[in-house]
């Protein structure tokens, strides 16, 4: 028994069957520890997204076990997996994926509503986290009225507001220019340092990897290297 937030043991994922079967992950063993700021790198098709999906309880392995905060995903129903994601995991997507009909604040409050928080507390926490990510004064703007970088900040705020055990980001800077990328990476890095939030970031971007405290390299569905930096 370790204090790992995520523990993968012999995880394999096969898409399709027979001659058309694709082995996206092969016998992966991995532990994500509290406070990690890990980057998951590797060429396209190496299994980064598949592994992030496993860690985020979005998908279940074909074989092996994924345990998140002590809960084995294989034993959970769809509703229980939803609960697990709601309470333990925050997501940041490449395409931001904000709800277009809600303002920046409402996008964040929506997650808190799913948690059943009262209106006053929701509003306070949404306002605080938006200030934290540098979007004070933009609370009432809808996604279409924000730049790409600002939308991604809202997405980070949404992922963090419910204080999850781990935040997973899949290519979060792929659609951003270099200045915005720098700002976003600094933001995530600061939140990791100051709030102790665990981040696992799937990326090709060297500017993200520069701040990484742990670098995991995937190749053909296997972990080719896993090194802690500094």
């Amino acid at each position: 028994m370790t204090d790992a937030i995520v523990s993968c043991r012999g995880v394999s994922k096969i898409f399709g069957s027979g001659e058309l079967a694709v082995h996206a992950l092969r016998e992966v063993d991995l532990e994500i520890l509290p406070g990690d700021f890990a980057t998951l790198a590797g060429p396209s098709g190496s299994g980064k997204t598949t592994l992030l999906n496993m860690i985020g309880a979005l998908d279940t392995p074909s074989s092996g076990h994924v345990v998140i905060d002590g809960q084995d995903l294989g034993s959970l129903s769809k509703a229980q997996l939803s609960d697990l994601r709601l309470n333990k995991v925050g997501f940041v997507f490449q395409a931001y994926n904000l709800i277009p009909v809600l303002s920046a604040r409402e996008n964040i409050e929506f997650v808190l509503e799913l948690h059943g928080l009262e209106r006053g507390e929701r509003r306070q926490r949404a306002t605080d986290i938006l200030r934290e990510v540098g979007l004070e004064g933009m609370e009432d703007r809808r996604p279409a009225q924000l730049s790409g970088g600002q939308q991604q900040r809202v997405a980070v705020a949404r992922a963090l507001v419910s204080r999850p055990r781990i935040v997973l980001a899949d290519e979060p800077t792929a659609n951003l220019d270099s200045r915005t990328t720098g700002e976003l990476v600094q933001l995530m890095y600061r939140l990791n340092r100051e709030m102790g939030t665990t981040f696992v970031i799937g990326t090709h971007d060297p500017r993200v990897m520069e701040h990484s405290k742990r670098h995991i390299e995937l190749l053909d569905g296997r972990i080719a290297s896993d090194e802690r930096i500094g």
Binding site: S82, D83, R85, L86, F91, F93, N97, L114
Partner: peptide
Amino acid sequence: HEFGLLQALGMKPRL
């Protein structure tokens, strides 16, 4: 895509 996203954020299928 959006319904999948909502579930990814923790919204139950029933909701």
